[in-house]
Simulated assay, not measured.
Amino acid sequence: MTFRLRAARPEDIEPLYEMAKLTGGGFTNLPADRNALEAKLARAQAAFARDDDELGDDQFVLVLENTENGQVRGTCQLFTQVGQQWPFYSYRLTTLTQHSQELDRTVRAELLSLVTDLEGSSEVGGLFLHPNERAGGLGLLLARSRYLFIAMHRLRFAPRILAELRGIIDDAGGSPFWDGVAGRFFGMSFQEADYFNAINGNQFIADLMPKHPVYVAMLDEDARKVIGLPHPTGRAAMRMLEQEGFAYENYVDIFDGGPTMTARTDRVKSIAEATPSTVSDIALDIGERALIATGTLSDFRCAYGRRDIGEDGTIAIDATCARTLEIGVGDEVWSVAR
């Protein structure tokens, strides 16, 4: 089977809705709500249709398509500038050091402070791969295709980029972090708050959340021990982000306490190493394995393939990839080593 990433279309609503029901909660960018997903697709259509190269408040939705049967089996999203419609809140984990001369004792206390430090950053998120397809490197294809999209539309993305990883969710769909921190003030469960945020945004956090720092030592143990930890299913994603140059800098999600990873956009490995080339030849079996992408905005397509970049900068690609991406000699592609 061959797969490719492409721009999402309004008719992708049904497979997206079916996948959203499989996420198990804590997945704000892919809510199991048909109206919310239709709004996301409409916003993505507007973003794909805007052809000026300026940084705006765009959201792009990409889907993973099986080219043999047309089935959509995964999705991912890109946000060009967070915090434009409503504040982008995070908790920042900091340390306060205090010393008593009389007691000859130094005390260091960890604090969670509500901040909007990451406002204006771009974001990669909403990545979900159907459980039946979690093999063959398709998760990596989903993740890294986003960076080729950014490289190909660089002026539409901010200098800094972030990725939020889902935090620890228990078997009942609850969040120990939410129960220990924000849940004490809101009178709603994690699932209720997470769903409300996915549909309406998190302005209610600004309206109701205490603005004073929270002392970590005053939280119960269940909440303390999950701060900054990714959900078990997100550990591989965290490693992939680290390999791309993202780092955890003590920002955590206000709902589930999961880690927020950040990087300078131009230093993300797959963006920095992405190379534009003109296709000079299509062969049966050549060169090194790579991710290869083509097309602008709504015509964007990306797939695994093989490449051989010549001394003149042109590229030869394998026939299967050329067929999957519907390209031929003379077309422009961007590629990065797999």
Rank of each mutant, 00 (worst) to 15 (best):
Asp299Glu: 14
Tyr215Ala: 09
Asp308Glu: 11
Gln98Val: 15
Leu5Ser: 06
Ala319Val: 13
Tyr195Lys: 15
Lys211Asp: 06
Arg6Asn: 01
Thr296Gln: 09
Asn69Glu: 12
Gly183Arg: 07
Ala290Gln: 02
Arg160Met: 12
Val181Lys: 01
Ser113Thr: 15
Gln71Gly: 10
Tyr195Gln: 14
Arg9Tyr: 00
Gly228Val: 07
Gly295Met: 04
Ala135Glu: 10
Cys302Ile: 12
Leu93Ser: 10
Leu140Phe: 09
Leu129Gln: 00
Gly310Ile: 03
Gln203Cys: 00
Tyr248Pro: 07
Ala283Cys: 06
Val214Cys: 00
Ser122Pro: 12
Phe149Cys: 13
Phe190Asn: 01
Gly125Pro: 07
Arg306His: 12
Ser270Tyr: 02
Arg156Tyr: 02
Thr95Val: 15
Asp256Phe: 09
Asp222Ser: 14
Ile317Thr: 07
Glu332Ser: 11
Thr75Gln: 13
Val336Ile: 09
Ala206Gln: 08
Asp33Arg: 04
Ala237Lys: 08
Ala8Pro: 11
Asn197Lys: 02
His153Lys: 07
Val226Pro: 08
Leu64Thr: 01
Gly187Asn: 12
Leu325Ala: 08
Ser277His: 02
Phe48Thr: 06
Ala135Tyr: 05
Ala32Phe: 05
Lys225Arg: 13
Gly295Lys: 00
Ile205Gln: 01
Ala223Thr: 08
Ile315Arg: 01
Tyr215Gln: 05
Arg184Asp: 03
Ile292Leu: 13
Val279Tyr: 05
Arg43Glu: 11
Phe149Lys: 10
Ala135Met: 06
Glu244Gly: 09
Pro131Phe: 02
Ile169Phe: 06
Glu311Met: 05
Ile254Trp: 01
Phe204Asn: 03
Phe246His: 09
Gly173Lys: 11
Leu155Lys: 13
Asp171Gly: 12
Thr320Arg: 13
Ala236Glu: 14
Arg235His: 10
Leu64Ala: 01
Arg289Asp: 14
Gly287Met: 09
Phe60Ala: 03
Asp266Ile: 14
Thr233His: 09
Ser335Val: 06
Gln101Val: 14
Val252Lys: 10
Tyr91Leu: 12
Gly180Ala: 12
Asp220Ala: 05
Glu164Asn: 06
Asp285Arg: 15
Leu229Lys: 15
Thr294Cys: 13
Cys76Ile: 04
Ala290His: 02
Ala182Arg: 09
Glu54Val: 14
Arg6Phe: 03
Arg184Met: 09
Glu242Met: 15
Gly24Tyr: 11
Glu242Thr: 14
Asp207Ala: 13
Gln71Ser: 15
Ala198Pro: 08
Val226Phe: 07
Leu16Val: 10
Thr116Val: 11
Gln81Met: 11
Arg184Leu: 14
Phe60Thr: 08
His231Arg: 09
Phe48Ser: 05
Ala172Pro: 01
Gly136Leu: 03
Arg166Ala: 04
Val72Phe: 01
Thr23Asp: 07
Ala237Gly: 12
Thr106Phe: 11
Glu14Lys: 14
Leu284Asp: 13
Thr265Tyr: 02
Thr278Cys: 06
